[in-house]
């Protein structure tokens, strides 16, 4: 047993529920990044990137070149605006199920 990998079927089902369920694809309006988004409420946002999307985002790419520090991990403002647009357009449903 090498790690924490959950083994019980129920725990695996929870893992899937909390990490994968109800993610909706949203494309950035400024670059080729496509991420998966979930909105449990107006103020909540969950954004799942892929390696492909990450490398398409120039904003994050620029920050990777700079020195490390407190600001390098912030979200990309353009993507956030794109997500807000998609929510306004009704492409991302807003609301939670049973705590997820």
């Amino acid at each position: 047993m090498a790690s924490f990998v959950p083994t019980s079927a129920e725990t695996l089902a929870d893992l899937r529920r909390y990490t994968e369920d109800r993610l909706v694809e949203v494309a950035c309006l400024d670059c080729l990044a496509r991420v998966r988004v979930k909105k449990n409420s107006d103020h909540h946002t969950s954004v799942q990137w892929s390696a492909e999307a990450r490398s398409a985002c120039q904003e994050l790419g620029r920050r990777d070149q700079g020195p490390g520090g407190r600001d390098v991990h912030k979200p990309c403002a353009r993507l956030m605006a794109s997500i807000d647009d998609a929510v306004r357009a009704g492409a991302v449903p807003v609301g939670a199920y049973d705590g997820y």
Binding site: W49, S50, R54
Partner: peptide, 16 residues
């Protein structure tokens, strides 16, 4: 696995 290192962002709704 890719999902272990893929970027992930989460804003918690603290309003309620």
């Amino acid at each position: 696995k890719p999902e272990m290192t893929d970027r992930f962002e989460f804003e918690v709704d603290t309003t309620k």
